[in-house]
Amino acid sequence: MARKSFRQALNEALRHEMARDDNVIVLGEDVCGGAGASGEQDAWGGAFGVTKGLLAEFGPERIMDTPITESAFIGAAAGAAMTGLRPVAEIMFVDFLGVCFDQIFNQAAKVRYMFGGKAVTPLVIRASFGAGARSASQHSQALYPLFTHIPGLKVVIPSNPYDAKGLLIEAIRDDDPVIFLENKMLYDSEGEVPDGAYTVPFGEAGILREGDDATIVALGRMTAVAETAAVRLANDGIDCTIIDPRTVSPLDEDTILDFVADTGRLVIVDEAYPRCGTAADISSIVAEKAFHDLKAPILKVTPPHAPVPYAPQLEEAFLPDTRDVEAAVRSVMEGA
């Protein structure tokens, strides 16, 4: 198996699916980059280069630069999905979904239910998310809890290149609307990725490490933070399980509850805001369903209830890091 970047893994997923099914189209701001200009027509391939090369392979009817009008093109993607295409719409930054939220959560997410089960909306909305790139408050958020809250949407957060490819192929083949969020700090990360097409199912968590002492649930880029912490903790004889839910809607509750039953201790690491967030959600599920398995209070490791700051020292303070995770695990282990 070849080592490939997270970006390349996503690009391969799109190419496989566009080649397999000509109903799959791609649209978004600068997904080619250069429409109507005098120079290169595929100058950008998306803000992060994920769609680079698709224009040459599939032509301008299959991949379209859009004006910066998210309501129109996200709504159009939803309408195209309702009428038989399988659009993959790219939003540069998840933060921009604020200007087109209605088309996602009142239209795409609800038509199937409101219409009594008649609508099928195979739509994928891809967006980058996450802090760490010094992009400040409007280009750095991890807004997946907002989408997780909405019935009718599926929400996917890959943590590594292998999952990124398999989950994106799964998302494109799925008949429900899927919000597919890519941590922008992972695009250059590398891992083993098969050349062929394969899927990673939704609602099945990945288990990155097994240990008997504490369970850590971590999402996206935070899985790597948790793994570094777990290695250090292991040196002190504290063995952690790390669970990567991979999709937060649907959420693989069973795997989380199984490991909590074994370890009795749970730390959730998440870079979304703490209030009504994913960590809070998982914490409440475990508190309700596995209270008697717990040997210590559940701890959440999240940013503070504050926007994402710009200055590097502030942004570092904002994001959960290895020391935060380590400290949380040591805390739930107290008295053990």
């Binding site: 996200i74 709504g75 159009a76 993607a77 195209a80 295409l85 009142n106 239209q107 219409f115």
Partner: peptide, 20 residues
């Protein structure tokens, strides 16, 4: 493709139907 409870909800969807 649906009546709509949101004023202005329909035009983007119809652009998509026209795209198809």
């Amino acid at each position: 493709m649906g009546a709509n409870g949101i004023v202005g909800g329909g035009p983007p969807l119809i652009c998509g139907a026209a795209m198809t």
